[in-house]
Design a protein around this nucleic acid. Structure first.
Lengths: 232, 232
DNA sequence: GCCTTTGCTTGATGCAGGTCAAGGCGAAGC
DNA sequence: GCTTCGCCTTGACCTGCATCAAGCAAAGGC
């Protein structure tokens, strides 16, 4: 990696408080790789060779079984994936593909594990990051098991809205079929669900969403801190 | 805690390699508590006061939302729960209740966090334990989203069988309605699913299960390393 | 012994959401 | 302008699972 690239990634969350020397150890053999959209970055079942950190663009994390596929998460800049597999030196449980053109930092797994064994601050970084990730998956599991498709959509809309300044109108950040996968439903069902939200004054025109009555949508969605609040 | 009790819990997995002095720091203010069956140990939404470790008995981890409830896991001795909430000093995302009479080690959250900040070995223990837990939830999420109820049952039977010596006959470790919750289905559906397994030579008599044709059951279940194998 | 309780099974019915097939529509190309 | 190609929507249909309502059988109380 070039020095200028190193500076771009040095203050990623996972390096927070870690000895510069150790960060350099990891980055020396790392790559900051550019990928076009639609490339498979990681395949489920492979041994964990690299810790991946999204620097730019969006990455979809998914898993397949027989002829089925399910999206687990859609990650933006700052998030790393497959950390657990790297720490434990196991195989990947999930696959990942770039949804948009993306830049991803690839840190060799063995250097991650080496620094993990030596640097207490890094071990703590990984532990808190893993704890965060753990809680994210738990929330997702609850979201899937305890809510209907319509409820998931309503909650997603409210959460996305408030993450982006709370404007009445906004654009979907990715294609509707990706959103459908993210919400765990077929694209057709997403369509119908959007239609079912019109009594709640949600207007959909292409990728543009308009939420004209947050109150009534909230009544339907019944958001819960222990599922939706990213800070709790 | 009494000295004799301390010895019982000192070599739990999470204290592996941790400085004795620090383990004592945590255990000094800990309780080894006995609970009857059916007691709520932890309530979703409460702040994380204690790290809980199951020493004896079985504990069901679950979550509620509106009038629904879902079981996330059933834990036996050696497992800790709500570690992520303790590390991050957040609220519990899940509730827990004892299924059987149980003994649970309760370690005050602040002493866990204090040792986490001081002792590198403990930070690494927590990190690997969190990584394991993370992978468990991911597997559970995949199990739920990618499989039908019948497939989940078939895989659970095969996994339980091989975890317990691979005998042809065995007893269910808990009530069928708990198993149903664990598998994410209504008790009635579990009943029907058991019935649907009789062509695969699975016999059910009360709590006794007999698997007479592992091969054909495996063909149905199609177990996958990235969902079912606890070691991968 | 009988009766109640509790857990489980079985049947009937309804609904959410998946699947298949046929358009509609906007963007890009010619 | 028209055509083509993806993406999305709409309609019709089907299936897996939840729900409700009995029945049944083993276990414990008296």
């Amino acid at each position: 990696m070039r020095a200028e690239e190193i500076d771009q990634v040095r203050d990623l969350r996972i390096f927070n408080g870690v000895d510069d020397k150790h960060v350099d150890d990891m980055l020396r053999f790392a790559f900051l790789q550019r990928f076009p959209a639609g490339v498979e970055l990681v395949r489920e079942g492979d041994p964990a060779d690299f810790l991946h950190v999204v620097v730019e663009g969006r990455v979809e994390v998914f898993s397949s079984y027989r002829d089925r596929e399910t999206t687990v998460a859609v990650l933006g800049p700052g998030y790393c994936f497959i950390m657990a597999a790297v720490v434990l030196d196991r195989i990947y449980l999930k696959s990942a593909r770039s949804l948009t053109p993306a830049r991803v930092l690839l840190v060799p797994a063995d250097s991650v594990r080496r620094v993990f064994a030596q640097d207490a601050a890094f071990a703590r970084c990984l532990a808190t990051d893993l704890a965060e990730s753990y809680r994210m998956v738990v929330k997702e599991l609850k979201n899937q098991k305890l809510r209907s498709g319509l409820e998931r959509l309503a909650n997603w809309l409210l959460a996305y809205r408030s993450e982006h300044g709370g404007a009445t109108r906004f654009e979907l950040p990715f294609e509707k079929k990706v959103l459908a996968a993210r919400l765990g439903m077929a694209p057709e069902v997403l369509s119908r669900s959007f239609a079912a939200l019109s009594p709640y004054k949600v207007k959909v025109k292409g990728a543009t969403i308009e939420i004209n009555d947050v109150e009534s949508l909230t009544t339907l969605a019944k958001p819960a801190a222990t599922i939706d609040d990213p800070a709790s």
